[in-house]
Amino acid sequence: MSAYWKANQRRLAPWLFLAPGALMFLIYVLIPIAQSIWISFYDWDGMGEATWIGTANYVELVDDDAFYTSLKNNVIWLVLYMLALPVGLMIAIFLNQNVRGIRAYKSLFFFPFVISQVVVGLMFSWFYAPDFGLFYRLIEWATGTGIAVLADERFVTYGIIAAGLWPQIAYVMILYLTGLNNVAPDQVEAARLDGARGWRMLWYVILPQLKPATFIAVVVTVIGALRSFDLVSIMTDGGPYGSSRVLSFFMYEQALSEYGYRMGYGAAIAVVLFAIMMVFISGFIWKMWRDETER
């Protein structure tokens, strides 16, 4: 035993160190994924007998209007959430200067990210509330008739995304602020000597150096957009008449909410959501792997 250990110590050690993490990953990530996929082939209310129905859940999903509403909203979320990148960068550059009290300003800008999403949702639903909400009153004053954003299927998703962008911009800003700290001053100096200014300076000198920060910002923004559950749940509960649902909320509604308990159908939605995330995740992993091997 000890002879074997001595001979293979260097080969075994990394696996031993990996073992606790790998075990956790297996129990809490890989096995549940497999289970979800398995459940998605059953008709099950969470308590009684589960019946094997093959791909019937997926067939139903393809025919379900609510699924397409959710999918469409998810795409809107993904696209509009990307606004957090340019806006966050702008604020970061604006704040990246040495004036008195800049730390206080920075922390104020970072503030929305510190408060819970639930509080953000509540604040924005009061902001939009008919009759007394500030936004409603502003629109009423400007156009004559107020708009109850959260009760109007045309605006509701955009209203929620605006609420979500507020903390997301703060998050991206902090990522860029740390990135800006690492921008090499000599390169900026050299570029300046060569006559680069303004947009050209930003595009050709600063942004390439911010590439790692941009990568992380894109990752967290994509994930933030796809898991946009809490704001939808707090602000509208998917309403009015289901028009602000996203896939994660739809999954919760079908599997776990008061009127749901269709575990199989919920699992099928989860699998679809997982497949969408997988596209992004594989993209990110592929990029990281490429960067590692290039070095």
Binding site: A151, E153, G239, P240, Y241, G242, E253, E258, Y259, G260, Y261, R262
Partner: peptide, 22 residues
């Protein structure tokens, strides 16, 4: 309605009523 009709029908029905009112 949400106690007389099964849960899934109740949910869809109430969403329909709300949409009709709007």
């Amino acid at each position: 309605f949400d106690r007389d009709a099964p849960a899934e029908m109740a949910k869809a029905g109430m969403e329909g009523f709300q949409e009709f009112l709007v």
